[in-house]
């Protein structure tokens, strides 16, 4: 199992454990983490699983691909660590990852 910590916009901290290979979006949606929707099911086509990877983990996650970039261009507060959770597969190297979630998605 892989451990992930989600920190909500209001500071609430949630620790979840998921199977290796799960996406960060599915880890959030499957554990009812607020602020992450994942409307398109995980194919970089809706931009509703936007979150922020904490600084110390940014070099360890897979790089942003073109389709993901095109969707990130429209999300609110696109900035450092900004990613679509559906594009991050949770490998053993990401055990312990910390991500911040926004107020909501649109």
């Amino acid at each position: 199992m892989i451990k992930v910590t989600f920190i909500e916009h209001n500071g609430t901290v949630r620790n979840v454990e998921v199977e290796e290979g799960t996406s960060l979006m599915d880890a959030a949606v499957g554990n009812l983490v607020p602020g992450i929707d994942g409307d398109c099911g995980g194919v970089s086509a809706c931009g509703t699983c936007h979150l922020f990877i904490e600084a110390e983990w940014r070099d360890k996650v897979s790089p942003v691909e073109e389709t993901e970039r095109s969707m990130l261009d429209f999300v609110e507060d696109d900035g450092p660590g900004s990613r679509l959770g559906c594009q991050i597969k949770l490998t053993r190297a990401l055990d312990g990852l910390v991500a911040r979630t926004p107020v909501g998605q649109h």
């Binding site: 409307d39 099911g41 809706c46 969707m71 649109h106």
Partner: peptide, 20 residues
């Protein structure tokens, strides 16, 4: 279980800006 997995708002860069 996943009611928002539908096409009515479109997907991709032209997805409905007012969907919420």
């Amino acid at each position: 279980a996943r009611p928002r997995e539908h096409l009515s708002f479109g997907f991709g860069i032209h997805r409905c800006v007012g969907n919420r």
